[in-house]
Design a protein around this nucleic acid. Structure first.
Lengths: 159, 159
DNA sequence: ACCTTCTAGTTGACGCGTCATCTAACTAGC
DNA sequence: GCTAGTTAGATGACGCGTCAACTAGAAGGT
C-alpha cells in the first residue's frame, strides 16, 4: 500500500491513479444513478430492463432461455431466478417448448411490453442527459473507442 | 423501441449506440473480472477490498463508522452489514468509542492487514494488465479525463 | 431396447445491498 | 434536570446473484 515500498509491484503513478480513480468513480456513480432513475420512473431494476429489451429485440417476443442468457451474457441460473421473479410481476411468462421437452421459452407479456415501451424513452433521455450531454460527439466516440479497446484486452487476457 | 418512431424521444444514432454499448460492456466485463480475480487471489470481495483499503489509508488503522461510510461513499447500513460479516472472518473488529457512546470504530485486524497487503499488489497488477496495458499513456489519461467530465455532469444533474 | 453422457433448466443455500424501522445516546432549549 | 429533536449505528425483511447440486429429457453408441 506504499508507493515507495522497494521491491513491490509498481503501484500507479499519481497521474495514473487519478485517472483510474476517476474511471472507477464514474462506474459507481453512473450505475447507481441509472438504476435509481429506472426504478423511480418505471419500477424496473436494471436487470428487468435488460431482459425486457432483449425480449423486444426479437419480433416474436419470446426466446429460449439458453439463447436469452447468451444474448445478454448472463449465467443461466441467474436468468432462471430473474424470470421467476419477473413472471410473478406479470412482466414475462414461461412457455413450454414443443421441440425440446427440456427447454422453455420466456415470452414478454402485454403488460411487460407496455412497461418497457414507457421506460425506454426515459432511459434514453437519462443516458443523453448524464453522458452524451457531458461530452462532445468526438469525445463520446473516443470514449467508446477506448472502451472497446480495453474490453478487447480483457477478453484477450483469459482468466 | 423504434428509431423511426415519430414524436419519440430521440434514440441514439448507430454510432452513439455502438459507443454506448461498448462502454456498458466494458463496465460489465471489467467489474466481473476484477471481482473474480480478487476473489481467486485473495479471497476478498470488491467490497472487502474497498473497506480494507480505506482502513489502511489512515495511520491508526481505525475509523469511525460514519467517516468510513462517507469516505467510500456507502450507505451506513450497508457498511454495518459488511463490517459484521468481515468481523466474523477476523478481517476487522468493532471497537467502542469513548468520546461518543453511540459511535463505534471499525479497526483493521492484524490478519486483515496481512490479507490486504498481499492482495494490493496483485490487484494493481491486474489493473495494469487489463487496462493500462491496453492503452497508451495518453489514451489512459484521456479515459480518466472523460470519466471525470461525465462524473461532474452526473453530480451536477441532481436527482 | 438399454445405458451412458450431455444439455436445459430448476432449486436451495448463502453472501450481498437497500429500505424501513428501531434503539440508544448526544444536544439544545427551557 | 427534563424534554424534544437529532444523530450513530443495528437489525430484519426482501430482492438479487453465484455456486453447487439436482431433475428430466435428448442423443448416441452398443
Amino acid at each position: 500500500m506504499n508507493d515507495t515500498d522497494p521491491g513491490a509491484v509498481p503501484w500507479l503513478s499519481a497521474d495514473e491513479q487519478r485517472s483510474w480513480r476517476a474511471f472507477v468513480r464514474l462506474h459507481m456513480k453512473l450505475t447507481a444513478r441509472m438504476a435509481a432513475d429506472l426504478q423511480a420512473h418505471s419500477g424496473l431494476s436494471s436487470s428487468d430492463f435488460e431482459v425486457l429489451v432483449a425480449l423486444t429485440d426479437v419480433p416474436e417476443g419470446r426466446v429460449r432461455f439458453q439463447d436469452l442468457a447468451k444474448g445478454i451474457d448472463w449465467e443461466q441460473s441467474r436468468l432462471s431466478h430473474q424470470i421467476r421473479r419477473m413472471a410473478k410481476r406479470d412482466l414475462v411468462a414461461r412457455e413450454e417448448c414443443e421441440e425440446d421437452g427440456r427447454g422453455a421459452y420466456v415470452a414478454i407479456s402485454a403488460h411487460g411490453r407496455a412497461v418497457i415501451e414507457a421506460a425506454a424513452p426515459k432511459h434514453v433521455a437519462t443516458v443523453r442527459r448524464l453522458v452524451l450531454d457531458a461530452l462532445t460527439p468526438e469525445e463520446f466516440a473516443e470514449l467508446g473507442r477506448l472502451s472497446a479497446k480495453v474490453t478487447d484486452q480483457i477478453e484477450r487476457t483469459r482468466p
